[in-house]
Design a protein around this nucleic acid. Structure first.
Ligand code: ZN
Ligand code: ZN
Length: 525
DNA sequence: GTTATCACG
DNA sequence: ACGTACGTGATAACC
């Protein structure tokens, strides 16, 4: 057979009507794309099936899964002795392992499919997760372009800055030590300089930013330490870290994991493109290094307050729904209701507090946690929470029933049926139990937002191809998509993206989308 | 490998 | 009486 014939036959196999099965297919699809194959028709990814059945699965190693989910007695052949085949068998070993993997996956298909059906996870699997494999593989394959000169410049600047701050700190501390070592830093601060320690950690006294912030007035070195931490973080994680993974075409290609989080979200590693700085001006500049290729532009679309909208929809709270329908700033509307003033009379502080309450809600907070965050007393926090739930009573009902149902079943379920076991709910330890309650409240909210976002990704990718557009999704960050578009296609891509994201799921509140474009990720914000 | 810290949604 | 906001990943230090 000629190479061309082999390629054609393999293509036919990949497109077979009944679909292909594999374990962790995204990686294979990515390789196929590099070899110019079209994305395959997928029947099942056993790894994703297992994830849907239990998103907390400890390991996706096939032998253990076959033991756990397989039905027939099935033993995997002896692992190939490397020494034995070492001389001529490199490719043979790889073939053997691939064959074993295929065999394991095929053994798992039936029992997994049955379990997926039994737990009503068919739609989630077939309509969302399986199509998403291709979308993510294409994003990983494309990667996002970076401005190498800009990135190098940022790294160099930060390097110099770290060095300068290091000298000042050693001067002020009166000794040389490794500032990166929390252990050495503790000795310097709390023993040698005699400063008063604040919070404790497992092993000693905390030196984190929150603690240092409170010690600012105690010694001049503290401010420099805070600055050092900020700059060193940017230098090491983003300066050096990103430069080290720039690949072909001056593009960075991350891996997006579909079977990692307990809630249904995606994660990103090598590198993590989900935590590129944005909250501080100094960190934000790294987004200037993420760019579109020549004559193209980046389009950034972000769901507005998707998790709060999920709460509104799930709880059916008329007050919260109205607030979103009015289309005003949600934190201001909330503050007006909670503090009993007109929206125009809401102070900055009141808005900030309402915002904290709303975020706390997503995380299942209690009065105690809110008090810590707002730096107020337990009583005052409880009273704020009381007026919040007074204004939005159905939200309280929803939270309570969510926990109740989770306790009865031992797991939570999102609106799309995504399950998460929460064994913490039956822990003998009260602290662990309330952790479980917070996780239960959060899972339905974060999980629904993730499901909606995944639908948007699948639909958007499909629509771009259907319309024969050249624009492509190059990145996603939980509720935000970044497209790379030919400049002349920008306005069309903008229309399509807003339409697809806004209609991903029909809720009792609108799904608002913020969108903008530019040459860099920073500019498109 | 575990711990502390800190970047994001 | 107690004391944690939920979900991730990278880095450096240290055992
Ligand atoms: Zn958003
Ligand atoms: Zn965003």
């Amino acid at each position: 057979l000629h190479e061309e014939e082999i390629k054609r036959l393999f293509s036919d196999f990949l497109q077979r009507k009944s679909g292909i099965v594999g374990h962790g297919l995204k990686k294979i699809v990515r390789s196929l794309l590099w070899e110019n194959y079209s994305p395959p028709n997928i029947y099942m990814d056993t790894q994703i099936a297992v994830y849907l059945l239990n998103p907390a699965e400890a390991s996706y190693a096939l032998p253990s899964l076959v033991t756990q989910y397989g039905e027939r007695n099935f033993t995997i052949g002896e692992k190939t002795e490397e020494g034995q085949l070492d001389l001529d068998g490199g490719p043979q070993i790889a073939q053997m392992e691939a064959a074993q993997e295929a065999l394991c996956a095929s053994v798992l298909v039936e029992p997994l499919q049955r379990a997926i059906e039994e737990q009503n996870l068919m739609d989630l699997n077939n309509e969302i997760e399986i199509p998403l494999i291709i979308v993510l593989a294409e994003m990983e394959y494309l990667g996002i372009k970076v401005d190498l000169a800009r990135l190098t410049g940022l790294r160099d600047e930060l390097k110099n800055e770290v060095e300068e701050i290091r000298k000042i700190i050693h001067e002020l501390a009166g000794e040389e030590f490794n500032i990166n070592s929390p252990k050495q830093l503790q000795v310097v601060l709390f023993e040698n300089l005699g400063l008063k320690p604040g919070k404790k950690t497992k092993t000693g006294y905390s030196t984190n930013a929150q603690t240092l912030e409170k010690m600012k007035d105690d010694h001049p070195v503290i401010n420099h330490l805070l600055k050092y931490r900020e700059v060193e973080k940017l230098r090491s994680t983003y300066g050096e870290g990103l430069l080290a993974v720039v690949g072909e075409g001056e593009r960075i290609r991350a891996t997006f994991h579909q079977t990692v989080t307990r809630t249904g979200r995606l994660s990103s590693d090598a590198p993590n493109l989900h935590n590129i700085p944005v909250r501080t001006d100094k960190g934000k500049v790294f987004r200037e290094a993420f760019i579109a290729k020549e004559d193209w532009a980046l389009l950034v679309a972000d769901y507005n307050q998707i998790e709060l909208r999920c709460i509104a929809h799930l709880s059916g709270d008329s007050g919260l729904i109205q607030a979103f329908e009015a289309g005003e700033d949600i934190h201001t509307s909330t503050a007006a209701q909670v503090f009993g003033v007109s929206p125009s009379a809401v102070s900055k502080a009141q808005r900030e507090r309402a915002k904290m309450v709303s975020y706390g809600l997503i995380y299942g907070m209690e009065a105690w946690g809110l008090a810590q965050r707002l730096g107020i007393g337990n009583k005052e926090a409880a009273s704020i929470l009381n007026s919040y739930f007074g204004a939005f009573p159905s939200v309280k009902d929803y939270m309570e029933s969510t926990v109740q149902i989770a306790k009865e079943r031992g797991y939570t379920e999102t609106l799309f049926g995504r399950r998460r076991r929460i064994p913490e709910l039956s822990s003998p330890n009260a602290m662990t139990r309330s952790l479980g309650e917070r996780q239960a409240m959060n899972a339905g909210i974060q999980g629904l937002a993730a499901d909606i976002f995944k639908i948007a990704l699948v639909n958007l990718n499909h629509k771009l191809k259907e319309k024969k557009m050249a624009s492509r999704i190059v990145l996603q960050v939980h509720d935000e998509v970044i497209l790379e578009c030919p400049k002349e296609e920008i306005s069309e891509a903008e229309e399509v993206t807003i339409e697809i994201m806004g209609s991903a799921f029909a809720m009792s509140v609108p799904l608002a989308v913020n969108i903008s474009s530019g040459i860099t990720w920073s500019e498109a914000k």
